[in-house]
Nucleic acid binder design. Structure first.
Lengths: 345, 345
DNA sequence: ACGATCCTCTGAATCGTTTCACAAGTGGTC
DNA sequence: GACCACTTGTGAAACGATTCAGAGGATCGT
């Protein structure tokens, strides 16, 4: 039913090629035909059929962005960065939400391959080397976001999460905390594992072999699971209960904060909290959250630029690693001289 | 370079049509050829070309979702509802963020028209009847989200925002507040104007002709502009300064809360706050926010179902209106007997 | 007056899939 | 053995835009 270029040509009394030229190279068309064609387009309400265009061109004018959880403001900020760059390049972005589930991720990657997207930006759930490899073999550029590329054959934009974990832990130890919990363990996500590794390393280095680190493994990285984790922490006997909690992201941290507050535990006096990502809501929390800040939009922008650059023949793969920064706020501000353990020299 | 159905057919030693049948109606193909084709597909790494498919089919397998601000958790929740339904129907969702800007909105609508999406879900910025009308004329179903359809010729899923505004205002008046501010005025967004109308009506009705309502018009509906609005409120002389603020959404409310707290104004004792949307972060705020809750995911789900239903010949346009609910939390809990004005009987 | 040059315009070929009318083969029935 | 029904497989046509070799006409210099 919708009008085609043929219909426009007939209506305007010109050939099909001329209409195409008006659309794509208006300066190469005489003023008279140009106006006739424009009029016909307006009268018929003609709209280009992007599918036909793509079929001919061999590639679409879209980018695929695959994220773990669009409800997490960290990812909306990344997405914002991506769309800003994509827009400038005249590309649309197809946003895919995987909910941490490899099946959904695989399904979306297939979909993006079928759509012949010009590039894929992805925060992978686990090891989906096979899927990504086949995408890449087909000539689709892939850039890993928030995850370091394993080999030199691909681009990635990430953050040094080991350092991030270390920063958080060092800060708490320096504030006098001796029993620390890490919430977010064994999710299977490498990013999270690196944060944990940083925390573990720092605690071990600063506090020696003492058993001071409790690792909790929530089922997801959300506010709700954060609340559950806090309940777990509170269920521990007072003698071994951590005096500070490092969360793998800010959503967890907000959940922990909510539950602690609800149960009457004062933050930071009785229990300090450090989050991760420094989403905008962290500063607005009941107790403003100390958090490890990551350059969220910049991550997205950089990744989008890289994926566009991959199309160029002289492209060199690049692994960009940003440095996180600890932002100290109320939730960890109090000094805690733990009675059980003397101050470390 | 990527393999086509032709290549697969050649490789498998069958005809092109047979390959297509294996792809779309495998049961109508003999087991032998089916396996040969499957093997060829695997060997060549064949992936369907969705563009060609769409060209033939005349429509894509995507839905367009156009929102005002993806960084607003309200919209991510709506988006979640939409994608849930779309996924079940085998459709992908193209997410478009307009930043409240009509030009971007128009550009995205053109893009979606070119993509031949099966339907458009949109939270319109202002009056873009013309654009939507032309979309609809082309046969693309359009459903308005979070905005009541003006005529019976279209579907919409919205919330009774006049009631929402009224609920917020009545609650504050009942708590003893006599000077109230509404933050979010004259944004040009009908949703916001309705909230304002509800507030105005309730205040007028309950408090009579007294000049008790201050309307502030922030430049946007974000946390940052909320802070600015709070500064404006504080700049008012104490005698006329409002004792309660109703915000057009929770982001504004969080901003107001931050700024008031930073300036040492106690919430709710010196100034109460009521937000709108009841996003998850509202409950986690420095002072848990009283907010007008809207069924966010349900809005998205309902809208997606409606847009899918539009394709059916017996479709009847429907204007769904949900009722908002006031959720009272700390930020408005204190009772405020205003010394200037005696209690209303 | 002639060719060279430039500007417009034309229409067939092409991209990869789906569909459909039809051919070929198989097995069963009378 | 002729006929029918059924299952498989075939390949041309169509979807709508882009591209490109070349046709036609005007303009200019000599």
């Amino acid at each position: 039913m919708p009008a085609s270029i043929q219909d426009v040509a007939r209506r305007a009394g010109v050939s099909l090629g001329t209409v195409s030229n008006v659309l794509n190279r208006p300066d190469q068309v005489g003023a008279a035909s140009r106006e006739k064609v424009r009029a016909a387009i307006a009268e018929l309400g003609f709209v280009r059929n992007e599918s036909a265009r793509q079929l001919r061109a061999g590639a679409s004018r879209t980018l695929g962005l695959v994220v773990l959880d669009i409800a997490n403001p960290f990812f909306t900020d990344v997405a914002r960065g991506v769309t800003d760059v994509a827009e400038d390049a005249g590309l649309a972005v197809i946003l895919c939400n995987t909910d941490d589930r490899p099946e959904k991720e695989a399904a979306y990657l297939d979909l993006l391959a079928e759509q012949r997207v010009q590039g894929v930006l992805i925060t992978p759930t686990a090891d989906l080397a096979p899927h990504l490899e086949s995408l890449r073999r087909r000539g689709t550029p892939v850039v890993l976001v928030d995850r370091r590329a394993t080999g030199p054959g691909q681009c990635s934009v990430s953050v040094d999460d080991v350092l991030g974990g270390r920063l958080a832990a060092e800060h708490l130890v320096e504030r006098g905390h001796r029993r620390i919990a890490f919430v977010g363990g064994s999710s299977g996500l490498p990013q999270i594992e690196e944060r944990q590794a940083g925390v573990v390393a720092a605690v071990r280095q600063l506090l020696g072999g003492e058993q001071t680190l409790t690792v909790l493994a929530p089922a997801a990285l959300t506010v709700a699971t954060g609340r559950e984790a806090a309940a777990e922490v509170l269920a521990l006997p007072a003698a071994v209960r951590p005096t500070a909690v490092i969360c793998a992201n800010d959503l967890l941290a907000l959940g922990v904060l909510q539950e602690l507050t609800r149960r009457g535990v004062r933050v930071p006096e009785e229990c300090a909290i450090v989050g991760y990502d420094d989403i905008d809501f962290a500063a607005a929390a009941a107790v403003p959250l100390t958090s490890v800040r990551r350059p969220r939009q910049e991550l997205g922008r950089r990744a989008a630029r890289l994926v566009l650059d991959e199309a160029r023949p002289d492209h060199v793969h690049e692994q960009v690693v940003h440095e996180p920064v600890l932002v100290v706020r109320e939730s960890s501000r109090a000094r805690r001289p733990d009675p059980d353990h003397p101050e470390v020299p």
